[in-house]
Design a protein around this nucleic acid. Structure first.
Length: 367
RNA sequence: AAUUAGGGCUACAGCC
């Protein structure tokens, strides 16, 4: 059983969940550790319904979850944004008497934050016998993300220790809700006190520069990214592409895009949207076609960017074509945003009758 | 042998 457990872990580490599950199912005996690691694997790979199903199953066969099991279960609830199931699990934890475990407490706080219930999160946090940097960072993130920057700031300043995650959470909060300059200040401050930014931090700061249209600062960030050796991260590369694009430096954006070692659909979208915003519709559409050729499946955001590019460049026929074929060709259902782009496109082109017609045919209510 | 926190793309309009 010990060896089989090792195998399951190995499979899960390389993302082979099906193989892991096969070994798990074939195990002659499963104890609480085997169940817990399988649930953890599903939760870590975003297969949350499976994680919760397994959690039910383990109880049905009479295996009692322990303090290692619940955090993964809560993580699944959080990812599903299911406050209802999260609360059920919380009740279960109280009945099981694991309330005083810190990791478990942190998981509860995280679940409530992610499900949007800051009051419950705060209550759990207050009732914890002791808190660590994770507990504090979770609450700061919760407050910062909903715009309660004052509270977040106060907790941040009262903390005995702050790590790179704490700083990044503050930066994200301020770039979303605050004066964006504050995000850059925090970034400089963190470096001054000797906390090393990582790829998460840099991506957040790049985004802050994009929102502020701060090319100068953005370029400095870019240089630091290269010096720090983080340039190969897809998310970070994309954030830089977007930063340059939003600052109107399309050629710089394209340079970063071209040297990226890997690109996902978000990277393509950022570049396409960049062209679109600056009226370079043809290039946007060209890039979209290249993306398809590269075998990347478009997302609903891709189509928003494409339609919006058509709208900015007055490409009415092209817009209609993409709009009409997106369901069949790319399996993407037209949502309110896509309709809005089309209405905008037709409106700008002076084809108000067609726009009217489209609004009337919309399957959803206009906003 | 198993458990917890942070990052990128998303139309149009509005305020001044």
């Amino acid at each position: 059983a010990f060896l089989l457990t090792k195998f399951v872990i190995l499979y899960m580490k390389c993302g082979k969940m099906l193989d892991a599950r096969q070994v798990f199912d074939a195990m002659p005996k499963r104890n609480v550790v085997s169940w817990t690691m399988m649930i953890a694997g599903y939760a870590q790979h975003g297969q949350c319904e499976k994680a919760l199903a397994l959690f039910c199953q383990m109880q049905q066969v009479g295996v009692q979850p322990n303090r290692f099991t619940f955090p993964s279960v809560l993580r699944a609830c959080a990812a599903l944004v299911s406050l209802e199931r999260g609360k059920q699990v919380h009740g279960h934890i109280i009945r099981s008497g694991f309330e005083s475990d810190m990791v478990l407490g942190n998981s509860l706080v995280d679940m409530y934050v992610k499900c949007g219930s800051l009051e419950c999160a705060q209550q759990v946090s207050d009732e914890m016998p002791e808190r660590d940097v994770v507990s504090m960072t979770l609450m700061i993130e919760g407050y910062a993300k909903c715009g309660s920057l004052k509270i977040a700031r106060q907790m941040f300043e009262e903390m005995p220790e702050r790590n790179v995650i704490t700083w990044t959470a503050m930066i994200v909060g301020h770039s979303q809700h605050g004066p964006g300059e504050e995000a850059l200040k925090l970034f400089n401050q963190m470096k001054r006190v000797g906390v090393k930014p990582d790829q998460f931090t840099f991506a957040s700061v790049a985004r802050a520069c994009a929102c502020l249209v701060a090319v100068k600062e953005g370029k400095q960030i870019h240089a630091q990214v290269i010096r720090s050796g983080f340039h190969s991260y897809v998310v970070l590369g994309t954030a830089l592409v977007d930063m340059y694009a939003k600052c109107g430096r399309i050629e710089n954006a394209r340079q970063v895009f071209d040297v990226m070692s890997a690109r996902d659909v978000v990277s393509w979208n950022a570049m396409i949207a960049g062209y679109g915003k600056h009226g370079r519709g043809k290039e946007a559409l060209q890039l979209f076609e290249q993306m398809l050729q590269a075998g990347v499946s478009p997302s609903y955001v891709s189509l928003i960017s494409v339609l919006s590019a058509c709208s900015h460049a007055g490409l009415v026929e092209e817009g209609w074509n993409y709009f009409n074929c997106m369901g069949r060709e790319y399996n993407i259902t037209a949502e309110a945003e896509h309709y809005a782009c089309m209405v905008d496109l037709l409106g700008r082109a002076g084809r108000l009758d067609e726009a009217q017609d489209l609004i009337q045919k919309m399957p959803l209510k206009p906003s």
